[in-house]
């Protein structure tokens, strides 16, 4: 599989070198998002319980709710080989990270129950891209797409227990403890780009992209899946989402 991919890349690059109109390097960053549906459902569960503890008369203290997970920053850097003036093939490395946390303490009858929840999710993708410019009007408007291999990781550091003074038993026991989970998967990306040429070789641009990426069930070093909500099944990490990036690109006309 890896050999086949290498051959494909090599063939593409050889063809590109023969016909290319130039090479472009680009780098950018901007706000991004990921769905993380099952993670956010587990966060809702934690928040539901925290809210219940916060409003239990026999317990003092307050733990703020955990923000929903998904907003973060996307970084990317790559290069493009222009086959024609409007069609390019290339590759890029893309990195996205999002994290949320909360902490606090409950007291009851002199006993303290510390609560802390910190979740961190990141993915790094190696993406083969293609781009096509379809409108030139002082700026250039284009579409781009790609397929990539993404390494995704999730770190949880959770101290969560029912506070002393809460004299009831709860039917669900959310995850507590530290863990690092990861896995690899293929993803797709598609988007629109607008590029404004500052000079003949320097351009500024804006990318609006959608990444379709659902990682398989993430597992730790022992092969155990991440089960935040304690329902016995590991969570899916849905990293699909939209990102908006500001890019700087340099175009080098090597073959003209």
């Amino acid at each position: 599989m890896k050999g086949l991919a290498a051959v494909v890349v090599l063939v593409v690059l050889m063809q590109v070198s023969a016909i290319a109109g130039g090479v472009g390097l680009f780098a950018g960053a901007g706000p991004g998002g990921a769905a993380l549906g099952e993670i956010n459902q587990a966060i809702t569960l934690y928040n539901r319980l925290l809210d219940n503890f916060n409003h239990t008369p026999t317990i003092t203290g307050n733990v703020p709710p955990i923000p929903k997970m998904g907003s973060g920053i996307t970084y990317q850097a790559g290069e493009q080989f222009w086959i024609t003036d409007d069609l390019a093939l290339g590759g890029k490395i893309e990195y996205f990270r999002t994290s949320v946390a909360t902490a606090g303490e409950y007291q009851s009858g002199g006993k303290k129950t510390p609560i802390s929840i910190a979740l961190d999710c990141s993915t790094i993708g190696f993406v083969l891209t293609s781009g096509f410019n379809f409108l030139h009007y002082g700026f250039t408007l284009g579409v781009h797409g790609g397929v990539g291999y993404y390494y995704s990781g999730f770190t949880s550091n959770i101290t969560f227990s029912v506070p002393s003074g809460y004299n009831k038993t709860i039917s669900v026991h959310p995850h507590t403890g530290k863990g690092h989970y990861n896995n690899r998967s293929l993803g797709l990306e598609v988007g629109l780009s607008m590029v404004y040429p500052v000079t003949t070789w320097l351009a500024l641009g804006v990318d609006a992209s959608y990444r379709a990426l659902t990682a398989p069930r993430l597992v730790d070093a022992h092969g155990i899946g991440l089960d935040l909500d304690g329902d016995g099944t590991a969570e899916h990490i849905n990293l699909s989402g939209i990102s908006l990036q500001v890019n700087v690109s340099i175009k080098l006309d090597l073959f003209r």
Binding site: A35, T44, S171, V190, A212, L213
Partner: peptide
């Protein structure tokens, strides 16, 4: 290609778990 990606985008936006959650307390257990 873009048309083909639309279903993938839609499925990616949807969570696979339902957002309804049964949760209760009992006292004493």
């Amino acid at each position: 290609g873009l048309i083909g990606l639309i279903p993938i985008m839609i499925s990616g936006c949807l969570g696979s778990k339902t957002s309804i959650q049964a949760l209760f307390t009992v006292s004493p257990d």
